[in-house]
């Protein structure tokens, strides 16, 4: 049974329809890659899923439970199960690396500090930042900050991890350290919905790739199908342009 099911999802910015009837499902343990040109609505799907951009229409179900975004209780339960990593990392500037990772589990989920600390240190070691616990975000490189953000998301023990162009703001030489971290998670069976422009990476880690354009899903399928034998002209066009450079 699929874990996350999205049906007919719509979102607007003013009169502009940025999502125009999205159907998507992500099964437990799967990695789904979302690709498409800028402004196609990929990031909006993730923002809408965690309730940062309210949907105009459509339904979202998690394990069969329907989420009503107008109900604060529903959104809260949903956010207990989803975690998002942002393009700009969005680390809390007033907190150290360790505090960034510990704040939500201790203050919001009310878990014991000692236990959370242990887990946070372990997660930070996993993303290769065991020596940066007491640094502040502005003392770290972009790649390091993004790995902190991933550790922070994992500390929430999410069932599904949403990654929103997590390497787009990074200098080219810092991209691989972040992608390596995500590869490890994929191998461990983390359920992920990944928006990215790193086509080689998407092809490598995804079980399914979804191509979007103008707020709609144009085509979906295995990486091999989307990248090597797309059926739709628009997909072909996009893929050939991207792969050419």
């Amino acid at each position: 049974m699929p874990r996350l099911v999205i049906n007919g999802l719509e979102a607007r910015y003013g009169s502009l329809k940025v999502l125009d009837g999205i159907d998507l499902d992500v099964a437990s343990g799967d990695v789904v890659g979302l690709i498409g040109p800028s402004g196609s609505g990929k990031s909006t799907i993730l923002r809408t899923l965690v309730g940062l951009t309210p949907p105009a229409a459509g339904s979202v179900e998690i394990d069969g439970e329907h989420i009503d975004y107008a109900k604060p209780g529903d959104v809260r339960r949903l956010r207990d199960r989803l975690a998002i990593v942002f393009q700009q990392y969005n680390l809390f500037q007033n907190m150290t690396v360790l505090q960034n990772v510990m704040i939500a589990p201790t203050k919001i989920k009310k878990r014991a500090a000692a236990e959370v600390r242990e887990e946070a240190v372990r997660l930070l070691a996993k993303v290769g930042l065991a020596d940066k616990l007491d640094r502040y975000p502005d003392e770290l490189s972009g790649g390091q900050q993004q790995r902190v953000a991933i550790a922070r998301a994992l500390a929430l023990r999410p069932e599904i991890l949403l990654l929103d162009e997590v390497t787009a703001a990074l200098d080219p030489e810092l991209v691989s350290e972040v992608l390596d971290t995500i590869r490890v998670l994929a191998r461990e069976g983390m359920t992920m919905l990944i928006v990215s422009h790193e086509m080689g990476f998407i092809r490598e880690v995804s079980k399914e790739v979804v191509f979007m354009d103008a707020g709609r899903v144009v085509e979906r399928g295995t990486p091999a199908k989307i990248f090597d034998a797309p059926e739709e002209a628009r997909t072909r066009d996009f893929v050939s342009k991207i792969l050419r450079h």
Binding site: G51, L52, R76, R79, D80, A83, F86, N90, F92, L156
Partner: peptide, 9 residues
């Protein structure tokens, strides 16, 4: 900062 906090409940 607000977005990150909201997303973390």
């Amino acid at each position: 900062q607000w977005d990150a906090a909201a997303a973390m409940n």
